[in-house]
Simulated scan of single mutants.
Amino acid sequence: MDKRSVQVGGHMFSNQKLFNRTMVENSPLSLEGDRTYDMLTNHVRYYRPEMELVVPNAKYFTVLRDPVRQFESSFGYFGWEEKMEGSSDPLGTFTENLSTHFEQADLPYWWQMKNGQIYDLGLDHSYHDNETAVTQKITEIERELDFVLITEYFDESLVILKQILCWELHYMLYIPNGIRSQKYVYKIKDRSRANIIKWNKADMMLYRHFNRTLWQRIESYGSNFEYDLNEFRRQRQIVTNQCLDGTMSPVRGTPRWSRVNLKRGAPSICYELWKGDATYTKILRERQNKGGIKTDINGRQIKY
């Protein structure tokens, strides 16, 4: 097992183990009375029974990406290309021997190499070539999750999510975070694409199914969808103009990805949107460990 498969005190619970309540700091097993958490947003493999013990009566969402693009992203981000040193087409060479690379299990995050998305949603690799098992898993996901977002239609997905949560559009605003450096972006040739699609058949089935459900949701949203989508993008453009200076900088210690730079003197909301999941996890954990005060809907101060 890669030593990075489990993180203690980080923003990921585990990359390989299904979620278990004991992974959570101060889980319900150690909390007083019937206290539980309100949200679970960290990286984790989906396992509904244990999640419900930590965040009961929750709505469940996930996001999927085109498996071909996801594979290329993993190839560049996890450093798999280092094994193809000297090749003029590292991604193409790598995809000619996918089963060998997977079976050797000697690359960082090797388990993401085959159907990484349905794996994260709880289906072990031993079932990935069983079309019946994959179909059953997709049916289970559709039954259990309230909505599946699609990366390639992220703004459209967020408008639907806004409706489900009964939120306002400005609650959905975001700034791109963690953009891969161009040095580690690889051209996907036709043969490589074909090899990736064949190898990641389960993820392709998963993605195509929920891509269809997204457009069904859009159709049932009503006549206001285009208006809301355009208004959301208008608000996003305002945030971009207010917050970003148009340049990017490499992330210290992580040359494979970069971050957008904020304008000097940008409004405070820009800094909140700019913070990543690891930063927010650290902030919330510090508050949890030190204790703090917040006000409930009735104006009473409560400790958290």
Results as ranks from 00 to 15, higher is better:
Gln288Lys: 12
Ala194Lys: 12
Arg208Cys: 10
Asn298Thr: 14
Lys17Ser: 14
Pro250Lys: 02
Asn97Lys: 14
Pro67His: 03
Trp199Val: 06
Arg287Pro: 00
Gly33Arg: 08
Asp190Cys: 07
Ile175Gln: 05
Arg69His: 13
Ser126Gln: 15
Leu161Trp: 01
Met172Pro: 05
Gly9Leu: 05
Tyr46Ala: 00
Gln301Gly: 01
Gly246Asn: 11
Ser258Asp: 13
Asn57Tyr: 09
Asn195Ala: 11
Pro108Ser: 07
Val55Asp: 00
Ile283Arg: 05
Glu140Trp: 04
Pro56Cys: 03
Tyr109Pro: 00
Leu273Thr: 08
Arg143Met: 03
Ile141Leu: 15
Ile150Trp: 05
Pro108Val: 02
Asp296Arg: 06
Tyr184Ile: 05
Lys17Leu: 15
Glu219Asn: 10
Gln136Glu: 15
Thr240Arg: 10
Phe61Ile: 07
Leu244Thr: 03
Thr279Gly: 05
Gly122Asn: 03
Val8Lys: 11
Trp80Glu: 00
Phe75Gln: 04
Gln182Tyr: 03
Pro56Arg: 03
Lys137Ser: 04
Gly222Ala: 06
Asp277Cys: 09
Ser258Lys: 13
Asn130Gly: 08
Glu32Gly: 05
Phe147Ser: 01
Trp80Arg: 01
Gln301Ile: 02
Gly265Ser: 06
Glu156Pro: 00
Tyr280Phe: 15
Leu173Gln: 14
Ser126Cys: 14
Glu103Asp: 14
Glu286Thr: 14
Ile302Glu: 11
Arg143Asp: 11
Leu214Gln: 01
Tyr153Glu: 12
Gly276Gln: 05
Tyr221Gln: 08
Asp66Ile: 02
Glu226Thr: 13
Leu273Asn: 05
Gly292Ala: 13
Tyr47Ser: 06
Asp277Ser: 11
Ser249Ile: 10
Phe210Cys: 08
Phe71Val: 08
Glu85Lys: 13
